[in-house]
Every structure is written in structure tokens, then in C-alpha cells.
Design a protein around this nucleic acid. Structure first.
Lengths: 152, 152
DNA sequence: CTTCATGCAAACTGTTTGCAGAGAC
DNA sequence: GTCTCTGCAAACAGTTTGCATGAAG
């Protein structure tokens, strides 16, 4: 599944070129429903194009984030995670286990949450003269495996 | 302003000792309304107790986070920020400028947000058998200084 | 044929760890 | 006196940067 042609235009619009490495990264992001780290993505890309380096993956992810095409998350384990904005999964928020690092996506209540956020966004952007482009919500705690005592 | 005596008990309850370095870190966190990094805290602590090392600051912050006494945030600039849970500031969420890294606290709408989150927390913790201890909300975008074009 | 993108290696930076000595209780 | 905490130096891991080569348009 090659990445859709409209990406080509997206890149051109910001003076960037469409290249094999960039396509490869987009393909990997499109194909997954996980929260991949840069290294995860590098690993996948590497299977198909062994010549592509980790540095390029980082640069591509950075570019995509700048373009607003990917979200960059931090779940507290010391590495960033990336997720396509217009991915296959519907909009969701995260439950993060602070003990084992497991991340669960949830979409329940998303409508209520987003509805409230739209109001809040509008008010805050006026009050602080701030241009809001995204929000991040995560609940922290302990997953079913980690609830029973065993610390760290 | 020395740190309140009840901290002593908090530490004892988890088999930990109250020490000068720990007091110093708590004092700094208590005295500020900023989102300090480990290095910021080290710097402040160092003014009063030059012998205390950065390592100890990290270890203390980690301990306090484990104890649930401080929040640990990541605003995307590659360093963690720490904030007392029971600080002088009322509960708030964050607006983060993705261009310059500025962070604005807001408390407007907090009540509505928290009210909704309480419902969501209850439902999610049942559904996923997850023990939720905290939530993090941040709006991302561009602050008034960064809105006008000038990228990065 | 100009300009942007890439790969490699090396540098950086925030954070963690091992260990012997010091301190809390 | 025991057991935890501390400081130092060194290790670590993820990410970024400099630079010469290669590819896109």
C-alpha cells in the first residue's frame, strides 16, 4: 500500500520534496495502529529499505509534526511516540500505566470531551491570544496487571 | 520557610527518611509557582546547600513522584518539569506554545473539565480495570508572540 | 543544474547507575 | 548499630548536528 498521492502536494506546499524515505515513513505510520517510537519506525522502514538511516526517520517525523500531520506524544518512558493525525483509528485519548508503561486508547466519552474542549479552546484562544492547534489528554494510573502492589 | 513537619510522617510511612536534601527540594517546590526542571531545582537548592548534588535532586523528585506528591510533566522540550500536587496554585491545566515552549497555566473551565473527567475516570477505570490517579490536559498551539509566521 | 534530502559518525543533553562513605533514627 | 541516603564519576539512551554525497524537480 503506497502512500496516497495527495501527500505529494502537501510536501510541495511547504517547499519540501517527496522522497522514498519520506514515503516509507508515512507508509509505516499508515499501516499501524500502535504508538510507534522513532526506533520502531526505523526498524519497520529498514525491513523494506535497509539503506534508510535513523537520522532521516527523525528528520521526517519532525517535519511531519511541523506540518501538523503527526502527533508527537510523550508517555513518560523517555522516548517520543508518533501517531498519524488522519490515521485509520478514530480520534482517541490515552490511559497510561505509570508502572509498566502500557498505553490504552479509549474513544468512549470522546464526543463529550471534544465538545467541552471546543468551548474551552475558543475561550482560551481569545483570552490568551493563542492559536490552538491540538490538545492532549491522558489519564495516569495503574493497569490491571500492576494494581496489585508490585512496585516498579 | 522550612517545609511543614507533616512531610516527615509522609516519608516515614513509606520507609523513607527525611533528610536535608529532601527538605531543600521540597522547599524550592513549595516556594515557586513555575514549572521547574530538575536542573532549575538543583540550581536553587545549590544556592543554600552547595554540597547537594544533581543526582540527589533527581532521586528526590523521582521519590516524590512515586509518592504522588509531585506531578511530572513533559512539555516537549526534552526536559521534565515538576510541580507540587498540593502547591500554592489552584488546580490548573496547561497551554503550551509549540514554537517557543512557553507554558501558560489556566484555571478557567477547570470545574467543568474536572467534573467531566470524574465521570470519565469512573467509567474508564471500571471498563479497563485501571486505577486512575491523575490526569494531564494540555492545549498545544502558538502563543501571541509566535503566531505571526516566524517559524522555529 | 540548483536546491533540498540523506547517511554516517560524532557530538550533545538529560537522566541513571555503581560504589564507597556519611547520615538518619 | 543498622539501614538508607548521598555525592561523585562514569555510563547510558534518545536525539541532534556537521558535512560531503546523492537525488528531486
Amino acid at each position: 500500500m503506497p502512500c496516497p498521492p495527495w501527500w505529494h502536494g502537501k510536501f510541495r506546499d511547504c517547499g519540501c520534496r517527496m522522497t522514498i524515505p519520506r514515503q516509507a515513513v508515512i507508509d509505516v505510520l499508515t499501516a499501524t495502529s500502535e504508538h510507534l517510537s522513532a526506533e520502531d519506525i526505523y526498524f519497520e522502514v529498514h525491513k523494506v529499505y535497509p539503506a534508510i538511516g535513523l537520522t532521516t526517520v527523525y528528520r521526517t517525523l519532525d517535519l511531519l509534526a511541523q506540518m501538523g500531520m503527526v502527533f508527537k506524544f510523550d508517555f513518560g518512558d523517555g522516548r517520543s511516540r508518533y501517531e498519524l493525525v488522519e490515521g485509520t483509528k478514530k480520534h482517541h485519548h490515552h490511559l497510561v500505566c505509570t508502572n509498566c508503561g502500557r498505553v490504552i486508547d479509549y474513544s468512549d466519552f470522546i464526543e463529550e470531551e471534544v465538545k467541552l474542549f471546543n468551548q474551552v479552546e475558543k475561550a482560551l484562544s481569545q483570552k490568551h491570544n493563542f492559536e490552538i492547534t491540538a490538545h492532549q489528554v491522558q489519564f495516569l494510573g495503574r493497569c490491571n496487571n500492576c494494581k496489585g502492589g508490585n512496585n516498579r
